[in-house]
Design a protein around this nucleic acid. Structure first.
Lengths: 236, 236
DNA sequence: CTCATGGTTCGGCCGGGACCGAAGCATTGG
DNA sequence: CCAATGCTTCGGTCCCGGCCGAACCATGAG
């Protein structure tokens, strides 16, 4: 008898994620921004009442959190742990049944650059991970990585301060579902996205997880991180 | 419109895990050993027919794999990715709703030492992680870690060969659900368990994930890894 | 105050799927 | 060849839970 209580707890969480409407809502929230109930309803393609019911259940289970603002209610993922679990499920789903695997996002903009919870994904995310790895600034293991001493200095020069992270790099990897290769997540991934947004290298787009790369970004990423000139071209 | 195809794929996987009977089966398989259909049925407390149906669905989705042997059919998790996803869900479930959280395993033997898929968990797993971290043999980040040069030599001396892992440490952490602290998983974790089993330091117990620590193990762990004398006493 | 908008609650409908009894295959042993 | 064991397939029941229409609150605007 392995502990059946914990198995049942897993089942409850998984059952919540295991509904198409709720999964679509959670996937939308993986974009990293808080979304209003109505937006989530349209993402999931269900009516407002139905969405409300789903959101109440997700809220009750602490999978999401809510913030009231005027007559809107903005929902977001309750914790990075939730995002991590969704990523792991995504990896399983992508690797699993070969028959009906989604051929990745149709939208070219999404393949190029998008947000993934709180960091960058798509070819941009992968190019950054490759560049940092190639420059010996980070070392990637399976599922995670560490920042080297040189890498810490390098990032500090660029202007990315890994606050207080004396010996705790907070660097994780996340399997990119369009490119099937790992990109940077975790604390470092979030810091990179914040930095790129602050410098105006990328802009969020409304209604999509796609990131728009500005002209300054085209130069900035190449100059600062040493990305190859042709990093934006499809598939490595 | 974020990609709804991938969200639906997640939903299908999560829905499979999100049933109490199937979750219990998968949790049992997290012990790392292949189990026969009948054993899984009793773990899940359902009839053989019901279990068979569940197993067929899990098999169809490539969450588990089967090996026929005589008139038995032994099922196991299809990949470490599956185990990883289950771990992540377990972490969410444990951190989630405060009301009905399972107070951890009642069984003292499980709290002391048990298998977690292919590595060691419980106070033993945590003590090993702490000792290796304290000795600067590994460095843990959130969710992963790297082996230092000294650590590689140290492990090699003990007799643990990290075959071909030149610069790829294959070292992950896994949140221990009884102790709420990370223990070692990944390639290194599996190697440690294999080593302990080979030396006769621990033995698998039938019908449970608990690991029995032999007298040789009591000495071996302390001598080889420098565990504190009182590592087995409850909570650090 | 009154209306419009965003969101939630209530009630009833309905389908998917979990469950078990019974029967049907395979494999091993006598 | 027959019996026992382990597992799967079939058929039928039943209930959980997703869905929407309608009505009900809350907030902000005129």
């Amino acid at each position: 008898m392995t502990n059946i209580a914990s198995a049942n707890a897993i089942a409850q969480v998984a059952a919540l994620i295991g509904d198409a409407a709720r999964a679509n809502m959670l996937a939308a929230l993986m974009g990293g921004q808080a979304l209003a109930a109505g937006e989530l309803a349209s993402h999931a393609r269900v009516s407002a009442q139905t969405a409300s019911g789903h959101l109440a259940r997700l809220l009750d289970a602490d999978l999401i959190a809510v913030e009231k603002q005027g007559r809107h209610r903005y929902y977001r993922l309750a914790s990075p742990q939730i995002a991590h679990a969704l990523e792991a499920l995504m990896a399983v789903a992508a690797a699993g049944p070969k028959r009906h695997r989604p051929p990745g996002p149709r939208d070219e903009a999404l393949r190029l650059a998008r947000t993934c919870y709180d960091h960058m994904a798509g070819r941009l995310g992968i190019a950054l991970a490759d560049a940092l790895t190639g420059g010996d600034h980070i070392v990637l293991a399976d599922g995670a990585g560490l920042i080297t001493e040189g890498g810490r200095a390098f990032l500090c020069d660029i202007g990315i301060d890994l606050a207080g992270a004396s010996n705790r790099p907070f660097c994780r990897t996340c399997l990119d579902w369009s490119e099937r290769r790992p990109h940077l997540a975790g604390h470092l991934g979030a810091a990179l996205l914040a930095h790129a947004l602050a410098r105006g290298w990328v802009r969020r787009t409304t209604g999509s997880r796609a990131l728009a790369i500005t002209p300054a970004g085209r130069r900035g990423f190449i100059d600062a991180f040493g990305l190859p000139q042709d990093w934006a071209s499809p598939s490595a």
